[in-house]
Simulated scan of single mutants.
Amino acid sequence: MASTEQHGSLQCSGSEQHFTAVVSHEGYGAGEDGRLVTIDGTLSCPLPEFQLGLERDNPGINPDPEILVLKLVETRPTGTVAQVVTETKVHGEFRIDSRVERVWIRNLDVTVPLVSGSAG
Score class of each variant (00 low, 15 high):
M1N: 10
A2L: 13
T4F: 04
T4V: 13
Q6R: 14
L10H: 11
S13D: 13
G14V: 05
S15D: 15
E16T: 15
E16I: 08
F19H: 07
T20S: 13
A21T: 04
S24P: 01
H25C: 03
E26R: 12
G27H: 04
A30S: 13
A30F: 07
G31P: 01
G31F: 05
E32I: 09
E32R: 15
D33T: 10
G34T: 10
L36I: 06
V37L: 06
T38Q: 12
I39L: 11
I39Q: 04
L43D: 08
S44F: 05
S44P: 01
P46R: 08
P48L: 00
L52G: 06
L52F: 09
L54F: 06
L54V: 01
L54S: 01
E55G: 03
E55A: 09
D57F: 08
D57Y: 09
N58D: 15
N58I: 03
P59G: 09
P59V: 05
G60T: 06
I61C: 09
I61S: 14
I61H: 13
N62I: 05
N62F: 13
P63S: 14
P63I: 04
D64H: 05
P65S: 03
P65A: 02
E66A: 12
I67G: 10
V69N: 05
V69L: 01
L70A: 01
V73W: 00
V73S: 03
E74W: 02
T75L: 08
R76V: 08
R76G: 02
P77R: 14
T78G: 06
T78E: 12
T78R: 05
G79F: 13
T80H: 13
T80D: 13
V81C: 08
A82C: 07
Q83W: 13
V84T: 14
V84Y: 05
V85A: 08
V85S: 10
T86E: 15
T88D: 12
T88G: 08
K89I: 07
G92M: 02
E93K: 12
R95Q: 09
I96R: 00
I96F: 02
D97R: 06
D97I: 02
D97Y: 09
S98K: 14
V100G: 00
I105L: 05
N107H: 09
N107R: 01
V110Q: 12
V110E: 11
T111L: 04
P113V: 02
S116Y: 14
G117I: 02
G117P: 01
